[in-house]
Amino acid sequence: MLVTVIFLSVLLLVTLGVAAYETYGERKVAAFMQDRIGPDRAGPFGLLQPIADGVKMFMKEDFVPATANRVLYFLGPAIAMTTALMTGCVIPWGGTLVIGDFTLNLQAADPEIGILYVFAMVSIGVYGIMLGGWASNNKFALLGAIRASSQMISYELAMGLSLVALIIGTGTLSLGGIVAGQLDGVWNIVAQPLGFLLFLVCAFAETNRAPFDLPECETELVGGYHTEFSSMKLGFYLFAEYVNMFISSAVISTLYFGGYDIPFVDQAGLTTFWVTALGTLSLFAKIGFFIFFFMWIRWTLPRFRFDQLMNLGWKALIPLAILNILLTGLWNFRHELIQLF
């Protein structure tokens, strides 16, 4: 019990730390892509920049618009941040760590419905944006909130359908089970290339990242749903986006890229401690790549128009996801089908 509490606290700190350094990474990647230097004032290579930004956020005036619905205005950022942080506890961050007599499973909880739990948290997360945007009583914020909700609903469908095809193959909903299946066999990306692509596109939409960042679209809506937010409330919204990006990258790595699996590591003759430690490191390397990929796309592709976004979701991704389910089903029952004829 105590060990689990300590593990979850460490996980919370790591998540927040990664999210903080994602803001630094985003600015450095943007600078690199635009042939600039990026933040370099605070500390060596600007490494203290996230701390400076955090202090700035805390020190700013916490302004509440006079016409805002105060309770919901407070609840919005809180829901966004809480749901973003709650997802990490079902993700397998590594195998079982053995140090002497002490063993620690690097997955806080492995419920039978792990992947659905992640899905439920994502679908509750949209309330943070909707309630915050509505409560600020501002036209731009309301438009941002409405865009967010319609975008989330549309892309959740395609995301769920792309997962159905994956689950047909894995035969389990537990994230630990999905990784265990990949440890013995091949990574799911080999069996589900189309499913992975659909899931990736939907992950961009679910985290409100460019090219699908229409809820905050600064060229049309000032700041979208967080137009009226200031100080740490704004900070929570922005931070929740980076936490979501981290968790999405972790989920993508877990579902399609073997999680903490390193191919052929069992033949290298390492002790179990080193296998576990290197496995966790490899998971974080995969997560790091996908976070970079999120940023890469943001600074490469222009933003979609809203009708393009809806058309892509409903007329391209959902039919493709259904086709993918059909193909996966046919492939999985090919022996029975051959016997039939």
């Binding site: 659905l116 679908s123 509750i124 309301l142 319609s150």
Partner: peptide
Amino acid sequence: VVHVIVYTGAIMVLFLFVIML
């Protein structure tokens, strides 16, 4: 979890969406 996904995450979002709109 299906109750949360379907009722809380989808149907109530639509309710809220219509009321806001």
